[in-house]
Design a binder for these strands. Structure first.
Length: 276
DNA sequence: CGGCAAACCTGCGAGC
DNA sequence: TGCTCGCAGGTTTGCC
């Protein structure tokens, strides 16, 4: 499911349901997701009170009152769902269930199990291998064009690949990389190091705009993403290029259809006329 | 270091 | 109806 806007949507759903409340029971229904659960996973969380629910890149960081931090990544198909009362029967992909002292039940569902959960501490969190090399957040605080240009200047890779590289900027995935490049009028194949000056300004602005609007829309629901309430996000209706191969470009309207190509194994959707 | 394919896993839609 | 194929929002690893 999730790129930055979808993970942020989940964070906003989880925070009020968890912060200030105690985890009264944590149940795993299998030994692993993408990786095995760490030793004592359930015990180390049970009885602890949640201090904060934060997001870094595509990671959720749930900090407990004893300094334990639960790191959760949703992979491609992970989702959290909050039941305030009367939870339905367990789905076959409900892998972790949290009972909260406010009476809520929070379930983590992940059909493909590319997601994972790990435990660390507040002190060690910055050095966690999954978080260590991650680049700056593109929104809050805003990414400037010069900062982006600086981070791209030595990259030989195509700009699309650079945007997907979490070490360059945090949280962008395949959909928002396509959308931001379209909005900025930049070809996905352009060498990253040549995105400088005005192009970098435009791209930085496009990244922020598309991510902020997607967050406002509750993320994009293709198949898996839902808000924690179960509601769908609706940003998928605002896609300009992603998933729209063959349709008319919304900018140069008449004759040029949106195209699709493969770059490093992932689909890139683009307008061959607007993007250079 | 760079870039690409494959790997992890399940589900779904398209095509036959 | 049912089977096979390709594809999917992510990330790591291993091989040129």
């Amino acid at each position: 499911m999730p790129e930055l806007p979808e993970v942020e949507t989940v964070r906003r759903g989880l925070a009020p349901a968890l912060e200030g409340h105690t985890l009264s029971r944590v149940q795993m229904y299998r030994p692993n997701l993408r990786f095995p659960f760490p030793d004592g996973f359930g015990q180390r969380l049970t009885g602890k009170t949640v201090k904060s629910v934060e997001r870094r890149a595509k990671f959720l960081l749930i900090t407990l009152d004893d300094g334990t931090v639960l790191i959760s990544h949703l992979g491609m198909s992970g989702s959290f769902r909050i039941y305030e009362a009367d939870p339905p029967a367990l789905d076959k992909h409900d892998h972790v269930v949290f009972q909260v002292s406010n009476g809520f039940e929070i379930r983590y569902n992940d059909p493909r199990r590319f997601g994972f959960m790990d435990l660390t501490t507040e002190a060690e969190m910055p050095d966690h291998p999954m978080l260590l090399k991650i680049g700056p957040e593109p929104v809050h605080p805003g990414l400037t064009g010069s900062e982006l240009a600086e981070r791209l200047k030595n990259k030989v890779a195509p700009i699309k690949a650079a945007l997907l590289d979490q070490r360059v900027i945090a949280g962008i995935g395949n959909i928002y990389a396509c959308e931001a490049l379209f909005m900025a009028g930049i070809s996905a194949k352009r060498k990253a190091s040549t995105v400088q000056g005005g192009r970098a300004d435009k791209l930085a602005a496009a990244i922020q705009e598309v991510l902020l609007k997607a967050i406002e829309a509750g993320g994009a629901s293709l198949k898996d993403h839902r808000q924690t309430s179960g509601e769908l996000g609706y940003f998928q209706h605002s896609f300009q290029v992603y998933g729209r191969a063959g349709e008319a470009c919304s900018v140069c309207v008449p004759d040029v259809p949106i195209s699709k190509m493969t770059q490093s194994g992932r689909s890139t959707f683009f307008c061959p006329r607007c993007q250079r």
